[in-house]
Design a binder for these strands. Structure first.
Lengths: 225, 225
DNA sequence: GCGGCGCTGGCAATCAGATTCTCGTTCGGT
DNA sequence: ACCGAACGAGAATCTGATTGCCAGCGCCGC
């Protein structure tokens, strides 16, 4: 379970920081680099192919490791994808928090959250805006996770969900919005925003493409009466 | 392609009606029964297991057919699941239309649609309310389809989507609601309602369970200001 | 400097399921 | 009764993931 342990370096970027070797045992450092190389290789493959349909073999070859080694660190392919999802979730949380903190009005903070989260979950064409990697395949994986192991997904998203609930509570306190149960509302917002890209696939009609702004509008007003 | 052809019996219950043999060639009739048996077997397995993780072998054995035969009618497992999805979509359309037509006010019709659709997509415990089968695994399959082959999914859902757009248009015309683009709004509603069950998995907290009514409320008002 | 332990690399082996193939058999139409 | 299409049984293939096995190798305490 190297995966989870590595988050403990104090500022939540465990997988990345390889420069920590000095303070850790050499063995551990090597292991970390190894895991990181596996993750990097996987990200590369995903970026090149635009899909998570790579084989473990390929990851192993590209990272110059052995199958044996891979299974030393990961229970299986899903664990690998899960680790990638964790990385992205961590990266996006920082970014979203930043966008939110740039605003002061509760409603604007909420709006910033929504838009930014949507940008993170939305697949990007060539000119990717946010983050270093193609997130679509990972988004798809998260959907699969939602089906197969919801608690696991909830765990990764927890910080983001928590932030959303806080924003909603603040907005309610400021009477900017009104909902009975912010927790429930958070679920709706999160799903609407995170999986908005799903809808775009159903409507090839270019006029009907759903943007981050649309998602926000929908969450905020739904079908105005 | 027996699958598609069979829809042509004029009232949209092609798969079911086996009693048509007299008017069709005997060969065709046999083929139909055979396909139907495969579908029935698959439904049974899904109902028993609560998951779509059956093997083709099992379907074939239970329906007393041969693998050879299975692949005669279906390209593969996905085609089988797709056929099941079609059946359910057809069944639900009839039911939803009925619920909608029981109302006269545009907004009420829309509400009826939403609630009823949600009931169809929501997994049911032991006491299933609507339809004969456990729809959860099929719902999950539809999600997978949305990812892998959105157009295919859009095609199955087309009648339902169309109905929703009509209801929205009518509501807009009656000034019961206000949206710029009903087509886009339809996408949001459809996704919110159809995949609302996804959210319930993320929040095991019983207090936060999302009901059909909640989904409707969210679509209608979102975060009221 | 030594022997052992645990991590490694390189493969081959195993497994699960889907999908195909082969070969007689049977069926329906004429 | 004859012919080609459709059928049933089962073995054979295939694609990956996952494991097992065995021989090096580097680091440990002594």
């Amino acid at each position: 379970m190297a995966k989870a342990d590595d988050l403990q370096d104090g500022h939540g970027s465990g997988w990345r920081h390889r420069a920590v070797s000095k303070s850790l045992s050499a063995a551990r450092s090597r292991a970390e680099q190894r895991v990181q190389r596996l993750l990097d290789a996987a990200f590369e493959l995903i970026d090149e192919r635009g899909t998570a349909e790579f084989t473990i073999q390929e990851v192993v070859e590209r990272s110059k490791q052995s199958l044996r080694g891979f299974y030393q660190y990961f229970e299986g392919k899903d664990e690998l994808l899960f680790a990638l999802l964790e990385e992205i979730a961590r990266e996006s949380l920082v970014d979203i928090r930043e966008a939110v903190d740039a605003e002061s009005e509760p409603i604007e903070r909420l709006r910033a959250f929504t838009i930014r989260l949507h940008e993170w979950c939305m697949p990007l064409g060539k000119g990717r805006k946010r983050g270093k990697h193609n997130r679509l395949p990972i988004s798809e994986f998260s959907l699969q996770l939602a089906v197969q192991d919801p608690e696991r997904l909830a765990a990764v998203m927890a910080p983001i969900s928590r932030l959303l609930v806080e924003l909603l509570d603040a907005a309610v306190a400021a009477r900017a919005i009104r909902v009975e149960d912010t927790r429930r509302a958070a679920l709706f917002v999160q799903q609407t925003v995170m999986y908005g890209w799903l809808m775009n696939r159903l409507a090839h009609n270019p006029r009907a493409t759903v943007t981050a702004g649309d998602a926000w509008e929908f969450c905020l007003h739904g079908l105005r009466g």
